[in-house]
């Protein structure tokens, strides 16, 4: 009877129901991530790990200027992508939330999410086609006589990576902001204007602060995965557009150096986590009282 109480209790049922998914996540994500952490302190051997503790992987990652430069470039590019994506996404989210009639909102959201779900690889490759030396933009501009020589700054550099990633992560940036805007009680805006503020000031003093929780979510949900993106820098980045994922892939796949690859992964994750926490801390007043 007593045992039935525990099993039949609300919390017991909840744990039981959640356990298959939770166990899967722990076994296939949490445990492997811990394994990566352990690997990063082991001695490298080609395609295998020598189980001997060492800090040398980290001294290399943190000491070698190549890693530092690559890490810095990844962060700067991810920041640029995030800024471009979130800034360009905000007006869209605002437009759909405030200027589109309720019954058409779903359609707009659907239109925005479709490109996101269609073959990522091919989309990235097409940006190569669009931005390339003989690409769509250059050939079109040449055809109408705008330029004589193809522009070379479009592809195989940081620009092309930023444009391509901004394209890939657009819906990720739009949706959280849209959700935050939708939650704003429209009478608050009327109250703002009723209290003597102009439309622009009402936006700055009422709408924007209330939408900030969405903006914060957008920034994180774009920034964190972009730091670790592999396909885009590989296909359109050229040598000056390489990012941290390329070196991880190189260590694991080409060099078979698992401990080194793990150390790079852990360092990158650590830096990104710290940056994300600092960002959350700086924006804490916008997140208060929100769930």
């Amino acid at each position: 009877m007593k045992q039935r109480k525990i099993l039949g209790s609300e919390a017991g049922n909840g744990y039981l129901m959640l356990s298959p998914t939770a166990i899967y996540s722990i076994a296939l994500m949490a445990a492997p991530l811990i394994a990566v952490l352990v690997f990063s302190f082991m001695t490298p051997g080609y395609l295998k790990i020598i189980w001997k503790f060492t800090l040398s992987n980290y001294t290399t990652v943190l000491g070698d200027p190549i890693y530092a430069a690559l890490m810095e470039r990844s962060l700067v590019m991810a920041a640029a992508v995030t800024a471009a994506t979130v800034l360009s996404a905000f007006p869209i989210a605002y437009f759909i939330s405030f200027h589109v009639s309720p019954e058409r909102k779903s359609l707009w959201l659907f239109l925005i999410t479709i490109p996101f779900w269609t073959s990522y690889l091919i989309r990235v490759f097409l940006w190569k086609v669009i931005l390339g030396y003989n690409g769509v933009i250059n050939s079109a501009f040449e055809a109408i006589g705008l330029i004589k020589q193809p522009m070379t700054f479009l592809l195989y550099n940081a620009n092309s990576v930023v444009i391509t990633l901004a394209h890939s992560y657009a819906p990720f940036a739009i949706l959280p902001i849209f959700v935050a805007l939708e939650k704003i009680d429209r009478s608050l805006l009327e109250a703002g204007q009723d209290l003597g503020e102009s439309q622009i000031m009402t936006f700055l003093r009422v709408t924007l602060p209330l939408a900030m929780s969405g903006v914060v979510a957008s920034v994180l949900i774009v920034f964190i995965p972009t730091v670790g993106d592999y396909v885009t820098p590989t296909l359109v980045g050229g040598s000056s557009g390489q990012m941290i994922a390329n070196i991880i892939q190189l260590q694991y796949f080409k060099l078979g150096n698992y401990p080194m690859g793990s150390a790079v992964s852990i360092t990158a994750m650590g830096i990104v986590t710290v940056l994300a926490l600092i960002f959350l801390f700086l924006n804490r007043r916008f997140l208060r009282g929100q769930k």
Binding site: L33, A35, V36, D229, A245, G261, S265
Partner: peptide, 16 residues
């Protein structure tokens, strides 16, 4: 996994 870069999941699983 929504915010974790896929490559991290890839290397973690490969290692495991």
């Amino acid at each position: 996994p929504l915010v974790l870069p896929d490559i991290i999941i890839a290397v973690a699983l490969l290692g495991a």
